[in-house]
Amino acid sequence: MAPNTRNQDLEKMQKDFAQQKKDFAASVESMFTMRTAMEAMSKKIEELEKQRQLAIQSDDDHLTTNKLTKLEFPRFDDDDVDEWLYKCEHFFTIDTTLESSKVRYAAIHMRGRALKWHLGYMKSHDKAMEDILWSDYSRFVTARFSVTQMEDPMGSLKSLTQIGELEAYYDEFDLLLTKVGLPEDCTVSCFIEGLKPEIKCPIRMFKPKTLRETYALAKLQSHSNKALVRPSGTTANY
């Protein structure tokens, strides 16, 4: 073989080897880049899955308790719907509950007759719970379970009198007060009128303006009256 031919073959082999080396290096770099991208994608998928699981857990927890305050949603069977609705409104305010979630919250915390009523209500209205306004729902549940609609809370408030301890009278007065709308001066007047004479007469002289002030004065007078009573049951002479 001529020297020139051998030189040409050698040069060709060297070029081919250099190209193969270059192609191999590029292939290795491409594989490394692909591996890095796949690892990054895998981490991203894991992160998204963790976020999804946390979101699911958060939604489950949110249906029962508020995430920050751990406020429990009130349960309801068929007893004292007015008190239950009052607690619901407080929960919705603190929880900043969406309008579309309110009926669902209420439904999963119903029991017994209340749950049966809810099922009948949903069937008769033929709507998704997300489409039912809370104002409409609460009006219907009140009409079904409220006993105050057949009572006269204003009359009961006016005729209420203290028989036992002051605290028991205040609790009963406060419960009736939630069922009526009275201006502050009328509320104070009704509260004083129902007190025992030995408490009512002294605090009238102070002319209290608010129920809080009136109750504080009544409590002081009640303690003062008890302090004047001897163990034998007779009062001290002054």
Rank of each mutant, 00 (worst) to 15 (best):
T214A: 15
M38K: 04
F140H: 09
K116R: 14
S232Y: 01
H223N: 14
K22A: 13
L220M: 09
K70L: 05
L48D: 12
T36A: 03
G155L: 06
T33Y: 00
R52S: 05
D77H: 13
E72V: 14
K15G: 01
F173I: 08
D23I: 05
R35Y: 06
V81G: 06
R139C: 09
D174I: 07
I163A: 07
D171C: 05
E151Y: 08
K15I: 06
V103H: 01
E167Q: 13
V147T: 02
P153Y: 10
H125F: 13
K15R: 10
E130K: 09
L176F: 03
E167T: 12
H90F: 13
G181M: 02
D78G: 11
K15N: 06
Q57M: 13
A26T: 00
G112Y: 05
E172Y: 11
I192N: 07
R111V: 07
L220N: 13
T5F: 03
D78Y: 10
K158Q: 09
E165R: 04
L48Y: 01
L217I: 08
S124I: 08
L177K: 14
L228D: 15
I132P: 01
F206L: 08
D61S: 06
F91I: 12
E184Q: 08
F73R: 04
A55S: 07
A40R: 05
T69Q: 04
R230T: 01
Q53Y: 00
M1D: 07
Q51K: 06
N66Q: 11
Q51T: 05
L68S: 04
E39L: 07
D23H: 01
F76H: 04
V180P: 04
R230W: 02
G120L: 11
G155D: 03
F191G: 10
L71R: 13
D185Y: 11
S30E: 09
L133C: 01
T93M: 12
T161Q: 15
D136K: 12
Q57D: 12
E89F: 11
P74E: 05
S189F: 14
K22H: 11
T178Q: 05
A26C: 04
D126L: 13
A55N: 04
A236E: 15
K87H: 11
K123A: 15
Q20S: 12
E167D: 10
E72L: 15
T36P: 00
N225V: 14
H109F: 12
L115C: 11
T65I: 12
H118T: 11
D136H: 13
C88L: 04
P153M: 09
V188K: 12
D152M: 06
K123Q: 06
G120E: 13
V229W: 11
